[in-house]
Design a protein around this nucleic acid. Structure first.
Length: 270
DNA sequence: CGCACCCCCTGCCGGC
DNA sequence: TGCCGGCAGGGGGTGC
């Protein structure tokens, strides 16, 4: 579910609504997430003030007033929603933090592929190996081409490799490669300069537009207010196998690459 | 080295 | 209608 645009949408919402709030109490209903919540998870949050909300790749980083960071990964089906204290508790709500203004911050995740942890930035090993932010100028055509040329793998695999560029997932890589006119299975070793330029430009364009539309919601994704995004209505190829290409009207194909559904136009993408 | 395949888990959809 | 298989936005591990 949530890729960079969805996580960024949640970040912006939380930054506007919970910064400055103190955590008065934490209820844990289910510790078994992707990794079990640490025994000290609730006590590490209780009494802390949230002083900022950041993002790195698909991780939310809630900065606390004791210099620790509350790290949240939404996995496939996770949401982090601000709700009134008396709002009904949905099934699969695993953690509820009560804030000092009476509202609550709730972590809901049916599949439990999400992750939460509190620690100093240096302790958060998840962040250590992440590659470039795709919207950072450092993610340039020169960088992409140099990285691509010294490997021999599918373009899709490279763009989904969080150690190279961090924050893209299956939906956005499919859309980006369509925009760039490159097939997902294309070998990175054959990437031309012009194709690297198109890929980087398409990455910026697709992500920027998706953030403006508050992300994509297929089933589970909701923002911090519990609202779905709108970008799913503009998918060009994702989940459109058998439909006509929006550019040339050839039939969109589906093929599994690195274990994930890949969609492309056999005519527009080479 | 890169990928296929497995796992984690619940829900939904289509076919029978 | 009900059951079953396949599939789903993520990530991590193993083994070829």
């Amino acid at each position: 579910m949530p890729e960079l645009p969805e996580v960024e949408t949640v970040r912006r919402g939380l930054a506007a609504t919970i910064v400055g709030r103190r955590v008065e109490g934490v209820t844990v209903a289910e510790r078994r997430l992707r990794r079990p919540l640490a025994p000290a998870f609730a006590s590490a949050l209780t009494g802390r003030r949230i002083v900022g909300v950041g993002r790195r790749a698909k991780y939310l980083l809630l900065e606390l007033d004791d210099a620790a960071t509350w790290l949240v990964h939404l996995g496939m089906s996770g949401t982090l929603v601000v709700a009134p204290a008396d709002a009904p508790v949905r099934r699969h709500t695993h953690v509820i933090a009560v804030l000092d203004d009476g509202r609550t911050l709730r972590f809901h995740d049916p599949r439990r592929f999400g992750l939460m942890r509190v620690g100093s930035r240096a302790d958060l090993a998840e962040l250590a190996a992440l590659g470039l932010e795709p919207l950072d100028p450092a993610f340039s055509a020169a960088f992409l081409r140099a990285t691509a040329r010294r490997q021999r793998r599918a373009m899709k695999s490279l763009l989904m490799d969080q150690r190279v560029v961090a924050g893209l997932g299956n939906i956005y890589v499919n859309e980006i490669l369509f925009e760039a006119g490159i097939r997902p299975g294309r070998r990175t070793s054959r990437l031309t300069r012009a194709e690297a330029e198109r890929t980087v430009a398409a990455t910026r364009r697709v992500l920027t537009e998706a953030i403006a539309m508050r992300g994509s919601s297929i089933n589970d994704y909701r923002d911090d207010r519990g609202e779905p995004g709108a970008f799913q209505d503009t998918f060009r190829v994702y989940d459109r196998a058998g439909e006509p290409c929006p550019r040339c009207h050839a039939t969109i194909r589906r093929r599994v690459i690195i274990g994930r559904s890949s969609f492309y136009c056999p005519q527009c993408q080479s």
